[in-house]
Design a protein around this nucleic acid. Structure first.
Lengths: 412, 412
DNA sequence: TAATATTTGTTTGTTCATTAAACAAACCAA
DNA sequence: TTGGTTTGTTTAATGAACAAACAAATATTA
């Protein structure tokens, strides 16, 4: 009665990420015949054929020769052609701009990162980003890869459809249209998404959460941001804002958070909590003496330096990291109870201290979640690490292609 | 490329609740012409006509005479015909079974509730429920209303597609097929859903959350259960379990919860917290003397009695309810931050003390959520109160009809 | 008053994703 | 040789939607 295919201007934009994802996952885990593909997707052979036809036509999927110790007629085996094209992923963040060039197999072929500052004026940052993108494009062209599109991840409220950044609090940017100018400038399809959502997309398509029915991506950095994906679709929240999971209150008597409340999760258990605790205890326990691995002056202590000190064996830092891990694990347990996902993927700065955080985080989460919620759930680290957002941005492009293959001449 | 309309056996079942909901909301808020409807829905007049054609054919929408101080040709005005049929909603819960008969305008025409006990054997409870359903059917038939279907809300893990209750921890039931036997017995389409999800559906279609893009329904009773709806679709969670939001940890040093952890939200701030606190303070402050409105013996104190005592002016009960309200508000603030919904709807036992809980709950939630998350969000009480689940179950039927009108002869 | 513009609902044809069913090709086993 | 099985394609059909044209009924304007 009421159908879901709509024109671009229609309101409903229910996307079949699941089918696209399934297609991608199946093709990735080995060559399949059209018939095998159809069986996996629950579609007819005719439909499966028509879906891959476009991908084959675009050179993104190739047929290899038969190799069939089976019964019937040998089929043509299909597999992804990584050389079929490349997608550019842009992670335009507060402190840096990172650009990757990924092939159609989602392998990062090239990456580059420029430091940045929220104090720099917007045009400067944009110009710097454009230069990085151009270099990525040159790299792709040098490899002879067709440009499939450009994806951009931004730390703020994004209008996905229009490709506009509505508001980025940490950058203090407002109403910035990226899609139109950049699509024109680089002559490629352009996709814009919130950073956490983009990273989640990357983990879903090509990372730790590959094919998960429902999962939560947590970006544990200065803040704790989250993105929720259910049945292959991003649950964006009413205003499209990424889940501000970090401001879940975990202790009514906790520390004061930047948001003005007390005991927010990101203040109690994030990297900033680690920094605060280390500084306080250095003062208190060692009278300001700085252990190996940490910067000379206490003001310069940041999370990476704590991670280094822990790696070098500092007991205080390891202790603090364990506390942080436990706090994060408790929060993840709540998330398991609330969302009941298949998987929780942890990304962000916290992974720099992965060995001292993740084991305890995982065990705490599993032990403290309800049995039904924990059963079958997996808590794990991001596969893309610091590249998560950029790779995810590139994944936006590939997702689009799996959903509706864009043939060269039909690109608009 | 990849389409969302699937046959019943297909895996993807993306439903256009939004369009169905829009249709219902538009028709409800006044008579519309086909053209006006089309404009509201963003469809062509032809498409809108074809959608309502089936509803008109089934007698669920009627045309009224023109009344047009407009410009062009006067149109036939369409409106919902409440008399077009009835849906039966069943709330099969732990302590009671409630059945309602709602007309196509979602008005509850008849309701009945039988007390029940989880100790009763399953066949007894089912037989009791069937008797209630039969009475509801008789009522509907007596009113001359065509039976559109039966919806059932259950407190547990439900397989929506098969209409099977997989597991209900509080009832200790497992693998109960309700759809097939009841659909056959009552000769009507049957829909089964988790209780919180059903209630959310009811609020979305016919209650406080009418047409909200994203909202969270909280059932605050013995436990705190939740259901999340985004873009008109229920976010079921990986295993379809309703969000166990009640086990979000809000205080690491809190009370021991039934789940074995400390400081779960439902233990810190739910009705059970109110009961515990009142009992403790009666002991401590008044030496066991029981104030007006409360049962004679402290063991018999339950949440409704506290609500009554508060209504009669008891200061202790009011104080405890205020504390509970603040705790609930804090949790709702977290929910606003996490999900960024348009709306949070509170239902369940807690509403019996509504006047002493809701104002403080609302203000606490709004003040403690992030500004971006709180802006535009509304926290409000369920419109259906104790009927929420049963009305929601009936809404399942109406939802199905709005999505794909079932013509009498095509019922299967 | 006549002509024109506006709005409504229908009809007719088209598109698009998909299925169902029929085929032809290729292979294996008895 | 004769089936049986699997594969990929072709053909026709379906169902939801749109576009465009049309006829009817009203309002506005010349």
């Amino acid at each position: 009665m009421i159908n879901a295919n709509k024109k671009a201007d229609g309101k409903a934009d229910v996307r079949m990420h699941n089918t696209a994802m399934a297609l991608r996952a199946i093709l990735e885990r080995g060559p399949y015949s059209r018939a095998g593909l159809a069986k996996e997707l629950g579609l007819t052979r005719a439909t499966a054929s028509s879906i891959v036809a476009d991908l084959i036509g675009a050179g993104l999927v190739v047929e290899s020769e038969l190799e069939a110790p089976k019964k019937g007629r040998p089929g043509m085996l299909l597999k992804i052609n990584p050389e079929g094209g490349c997608a550019i992923g842009v992670d335009l963040n507060v402190n840096y701009v990172r650009v990757v060039c990924a092939d159609f197999g989602a392998r990062v072929l090239w990456e580059s990162k420029d430091p940045s500052s929220p104090l720099d004026p917007q045009p400067i940052i944009l110009e710097r980003t454009e230069r990085l993108i151009s270099r990525a494009l040159e790299f792709g062209a040098g490899r002879g890869l067709r440009l499939l599109g450009i994806g951009v991840g931004l730390p703020g409220l994004v209008n996905r459809k229009l490709g506009v950044l509505d508001f980025a609090p940490n950058l203090k940017w407002r109403d910035l249209d990226l899609k139109n100018p950049w699509a024109k400038k680089f002559k490629a399809p352009l996709f814009v998404e919130n950073e956490a959502n983009a990273a989640a997309m990357g983990e879903y398509y090509f990372g730790a959460a590959k094919g998960a029915a429902g999962f939560v991506y947590l970006s544990v950095g200065v803040g704790i941001g989250g993105a929720v994906m259910m049945d292959g679709a991003l649950c964006g929240g009413a205003s499209g804002y990424a889940g501000e999971i970090g401001h879940m209150r975990v202790d009514p008597n906790g520390e004061l958070c930047g948001c003005g409340r007390r005991g927010c999760w990101e203040t109690e258990a994030g990297p900033s909590a680690a920094v605060r605790k280390v500084k306080a205890r250095l003062e208190e326990e060692r009278g300001g003496e700085v252990p190996a691995g940490l910067p000379g002056s206490p003001e310069d202590i940041d999370f990476p330096s704590i991670a280094r000190a822990a790696a070098e064996g500092d007991a205080l830092c390891r202790e603090v990291l364990a506390e942080v891990a436990a706090g994060l694990g408790q929060g993840v347990a709540s998330i398991l109870n609330i969302f009941n996902p298949d998987m929780v993927v942890i990304g962000g700065e916290i992974l720099e201290a992965g060995p001292y955080v993740m084991p305890l985080l995982k065990s705490t989460a599993m032990e403290n979640a309800l049995a039904q919620a924990a059963r079958g759930a997996v808590v794990t680290e991001s596969l893309h690490g610091p590249n998560a957002c950029a790779v995810g941005a590139a994944a936006l492009v590939l997702d689009e292609i799996y959903n509706r293959p864009i043939l060269p001449e039909k690109m608009e």
